[in-house]
């Protein structure tokens, strides 16, 4: 558990906004604005945040589906940031992705066998082995070998997500980046997929980066949790710490906003004012100050440092110590 599988150093991803013809100044959407974290071997690190916070962009940058504007990604001790497409391809075997929408992420014209086989072809596995592997994978994710010749539209959402997981597992990856893998599914199906992910992690010693917005799901699956807001990490700690003693005011509000499925519980909810600001024009200083109930002058001016205030507990807030107690 102690070894770092992945290290992310201050990555940024800016998307340029098209400007008018004669305007000189270039503007950017700062989707990811300098985040750093490490992922240990065998653990599940969750990245949570609301829409537009940059969590999916982070996932895509890590997968090298998008090139980072700045920063360094180190996978098993090797810097993979500057590698070309040809150089990265053999490494792609090591990290795979599971997508949110099982309806959009499977090619409707391919059979399940062809979908799962595709990564094996890319990575030059010979034909005889491929057929066996497909059957094996289908069984691992709880489907049957007679499903192999069917098309995606014949499956329900939960089954499709199983196919997506089988495809990700095909090349024996070490790291799986799962971007909202259960948020499109019904509750009764959601728990089946979460259980499957947990079983697979144990069986194949997988490391997960789990991107989600649903905190109750995150609490269930994670070892550590990172909270993102407007392109930056605001808090990162172990799951137990985060849910027991959240330090950042945003984490607190996020936790208290989740509706509790128990009508006997009456809580004092922190209701944040206003909307999430646009990442094209993020607020000065601490980006959360426009909605923060504790904001002071310093927050408007100075960007808080992402610092370790207790062991393994990182927070980006000027007043984390006072607010935590």
């Amino acid at each position: 558990m102690s070894q770092n599988l992945l290290e992310v150093h201050n990555i940024k991803k800016y998307f340029p906004i098209k400007k008018k013809l004669f305007s000189k100044k270039k503007e950017f959407i700062k989707a990811v604005d300098g985040i750093s974290f490490t992922v240990k071997k065998g653990e599940t690190l969750s990245i949570v945040g609301e829409s537009g916070c940059g969590k999916s962009t982070t996932g895509r940058v890590l997968m090298k589906l998008l090139e980072a504007t700045e920063g360094k990604i180190v996978f098993e001790g090797n810097d993979i940031t500057g590698l070309s497409d040809d150089e990265i391809r053999p490494l792609r075997k090591e990290f795979q992705m599971v997508f949110q929408d099982p309806y959009a992420s499977l090619n409707p014209r391919l059979t399940v066998k062809e979908i799962i086989e595709e990564p094996l072809i890319v990575h030059n596995i010979d034909k005889a082995k491929r057929a066996d592997r497909v059957v094996e994978l289908l069984e691992v994710v709880g489907l049957n070998k007679y499903h192999a010749n069917r098309y995606p539209h014949e499956f329900s959402g939960g089954q499709r997500q199983r196919i997506g997981i089988a495809r990700a597992l095909a090349v024996n990856p070490k790291l799986i980046i799962a971007d909202e893998p259960v948020s499109a599914l019904d509750v009764s199906i959601q728990s089946q997929i979460l259980n499957l992910l947990k079983d697979l992690q144990e069986k194949y010693d997988l490391t997960y980066i789990f991107i989600a917005h649903d905190l109750s799901v995150v609490e269930h699956i994670s070892d550590r949790v990172a909270v993102m807001y407007l392109g930056r990490l605001v808090e990162l700690t172990t799951r137990d710490e985060l849910f027991a003693t959240p330090l950042h005011p945003y984490t607190k509000a996020l936790l208290s906003a989740v509706p509790v499925p128990d009508p006997t519980v009456k809580r004092n909810r922190i209701i944040l004012k206003g909307d999430i600001p646009s990442p094209a024009a993020p607020p000065s200083g601490c980006t959360f100050h426009t909605r923060c109930p504790f904001a002071q002058d310093r927050c408007r001016e100075q960007i808080p440092e992402f610092r370790e205030i207790e062991k393994e507990h990182f927070v980006a807030c000027h007043f984390a110590e006072e607010l935590g107690s």
């Binding site: 609301e50 996020l254 208290s256 906003a257 989740v258 509706p259 909810r269 209701i271 944040l272």
Partner: peptide, 9 residues
């Protein structure tokens, strides 16, 4: 989003 959901509810 959850924080907005809390506002609307």
């Amino acid at each position: 989003d959850v924080t907005i959901q809390a506002q609307i509810l």
